[in-house]
Write a protein that binds this DNA or RNA. Structure first.
Length: 271
DNA sequence: AACTTAGGCAACCGCTTTAAA
DNA sequence: CTTTAAAGCGGTTGCCTAAGT
């Protein structure tokens, strides 16, 4: 639907800003059906990766970044089209409360949805919804509750997750015993070696009380019951598997609730 | 019917992180 | 160990469309 501005043709610059003497100017703006076809066919044949050289190999006048983005957000066969369902919306809300604007992580928990799609949906729908409910979309805290809000950055549109540790430098990597998180899926951010789920761990550096503060009993209960959080020094004591199962539990709970609701409705609320 | 405004979304930009040389 | 290239991410931009006047 949305269209990009007419190709600005910012001179002959590669995606990294390196001058290119003789290369034809890169095309920008909306993708045509023909380009989509070329890209999709090429990726199907050669596989993903090596985005930088892909355009040349595929015969596209696009930068590698653009190709990757187009593939990730539009052409991938597993992309789910259509409106965000109610349960998906609910899950996004829950995950955002925990993860903040880690769109790729959130998207990783919603099969077929892209980070860009979720980000857009958040900015255009959910944030307003929360505001309408009197909640700060960045913190999920009541807008009126000023005192607690001090910690939340208000200058930018971004916010660190509710669970961001105050000031101190990020805790040293937990050093997972074995890297169990490698290549977990749709979103590669956490797949390469090293990073692992560090950002997840950072995101989880909060104690259960933070959740109780604004009434998400699910999170609080889970945190308490599983000992996910360590109050001492606010350091996260969660490994990849634990965190993963925690996120899974978000979905499972939601599913259970939905199923339960469905059953109740089907049976007229009786049993 | 014409014009204006707001919302939605695809695409781009710049920065960060990771891997390779 | 340092440098460079590649990939990925979040934020922002700007066009299109629908709704409102």
């Amino acid at each position: 639907m949305a269209r990009r501005k007419p190709p600005a043709q910012h001179g002959a610059r590669s995606e990294d800003g390196q001058a290119q003497a003789t290369a034809p100017p890169l095309k920008r703006g909306p993708w045509t059906a023909e380009e989509d076809e070329v890209l999709a066919r090429f990726v199907a044949r050669e596989g993903e990766g090596r985005w930088r050289t892909l355009p040349r190999r595929a015969g596209l006048l696009r930068c590698g970044k653009s190709c990757r983005l187009r593939w990730m957000n539009y052409l991938r066969p597993d992309i789910k089209r259509g409106p965000i369902a109610e349960d998906e919306e609910d899950l996004i809300l829950r995950l955002h409360r925990v993860l903040g604007n880690r769109w790729s992580l959130i998207a990783g928990r919603l099969p077929g949805r892209t980070d860009n799609e979720i980000k857009n949906y958040w900015n255009s729908h959910l944030s307003k919804k929360l505001i309408a409910q009197g909640l700060d979309p960045r913190t999920h805290m009541p807008l009126a509750a000023a005192p607690g809000r001090a910690a939340a950055p208000t200058d930018k549109t971004t916010w660190a997750p509710t669970v961001r540790p105050p000031q101190p430098p990020p805790p040293p990597p937990p050093v997972p015993p074995t890297s169990s998180a490698a290549g977990t899926g749709c979103d590669g951010r956490d797949s390469p070696a090293g990073g692992g789920n560090d950002d997840l761990a950072a995101a989880m550096s909060v104690d259960a009380h933070d959740f109780e503060g604004f009434g998400d009993q699910l999170l609080a209960d889970y945190a308490a019951s599983r000992g996910v959080f360590n109050d001492v020094m606010g350091s996260p004591m969660v490994d990849d598997d634990t965190f993963s199962s925690f996120l899974d539990s978000l979905m499972n709970e939601r599913q259970l609730a939905a199923d339960h609701k469905g059953v109740m409705n089907d049976q007229g609320g009786a049993i």
